[in-house]
């Protein structure tokens, strides 16, 4: 069995288990997982960027673009189906990245991080100064159907969870496939040595640009999923602290598997939920200390618990 196949089967198995587990889970957990998977999608995009040697501190921009695209299409254009809205969010974010990428693709390291941060903060400012979009208060979104099924009753509780699961599984599968193509394999090559990639006749700029667009599409889908699960959108999604959390999830989770961002996002959400509940006055301290512990004790991220045990670190 090839590695690709094994990953695919594993993801499908995990998807099936998670779907089957839905009736067993309490409702608050369904919501928590749906929101975490939305964040995981953004982290999945960041994972691709990190494999290309780039860290963006502005993924919140694409997250917000996806959410606002889905939200405005839902409330103004009366696009009712959640699946269509998620696709729309991904496409809108990809389009924005297509344009900004013309500039961003020239940058590396901390300068890439800071330029992406500047763009996301400009977007934040524009959203704050748009009373039509509710300014900082944002607005509510309510899809009518999910893949044709009316969004009411039991569906209201399960739909965001199942939708997030389906989008996450599809995205992880697709990204894993992409990374095994010729184009996908250029990403780590760019990180290792851009000069050699150019000598081989590939365009580093195009590779980076393409990966930027893919990462943005994932972040846009994540934004749309989050918006539909939470039912509300506001400019905070584009703020730099949101982007910072995405980077945190990605690094803490580890970058060796396409499943890591999702597992990491769920664990961090759980941790936060328990910390807020049991230490309402010091939950930030608990989060910070835990994150430090993970960074210091597990240099390869949480996922390295699985890989290290077998001595098969890539």
């Amino acid at each position: 069995m090839s590695d690709a196949r094994r990953t695919a089967l594993g993801l499908l198995a995990a998807f099936a288990v998670a779907v089957a587990a839905a009736p067993l889970l309490p409702r608050w957990a369904l919501f928590l997982v749906a929101v975490a998977l939305g964040r995981g999608l953004v982290a999945l995009g960041l994972l691709l960027l990190i494999r290309t040697g780039l860290v963006s501190f502005g993924q919140g921009l694409f997250f917000a673009v996806g959410a606002y695209a889905a939200g405005t299409a839902g409330s103004r254009l009366h696009v009712g189906d959640a699946v269509a809205l998620v696709l729309l969010g991904a496409v809108a974010a990809a389009a924005v990245a297509g344009v900004l990428g013309l500039l961003l693709a020239r940058y590396r390291t901390i300068f890439f991080a800071m330029l992406s941060l500047a763009f996301s903060m400009i977007a934040y400012g524009l959203l704050v100064e748009s009373p039509a979009l509710g300014s900082t208060d944002g607005f509510n979104v309510h899809p009518a159907t999910v893949a044709g099924v009316p969004f009411a009753g039991r569906a209201e509780a399960y739909a965001p969870y199942l939708l997030a699961l389906a989008v996450a599984a599809a995205a992880a599968l697709a990204l894993d496939r992409f990374q095994r193509t010729h184009l996908g394999r250029l990403a780590p090559a760019v990180r290792e040595n851009e000069l050699r990639v150019e000598y081989m006749g590939a365009s580093v700029r195009n590779v980076v640009h393409l990966n930027l667009v893919i990462a943005a599409a994932l972040a846009g889908a994540g934004g749309a999923v989050t918006a539909l699960a939470v039912g509300h959108i506001d400019p905070e999604m584009a703020y730099w602290t949101t982007s910072g959390e995405f980077v945190f999830v990605t690094i803490v989770a580890g970058t060796s598997s396409v499943a890591a961002p999702f597992a990491g996002a769920i664990l961090l959400e759980l941790l936060r939920s328990y910390a807020v509940q049991h230490a309402p006055n010091t939950w930030q301290l608990v989060m910070g200390a835990t994150m430090l512990g993970i960074i210091l004790a597990l240099p390869g991220g949480l996922w390295s618990i699985f890989t290290r045990r077998r001595g098969a670190r890539p």
């Binding site: 094994r6 594993g10 198995a13 995990a14 699985f306 077998r310």
Partner: peptide, 10 residues
């Protein structure tokens, strides 16, 4: 990362 997916399921 041979058995990664299974540990994910677990």
């Amino acid at each position: 990362m041979t058995r990664t997916p299974r540990s994910l399921a677990v």
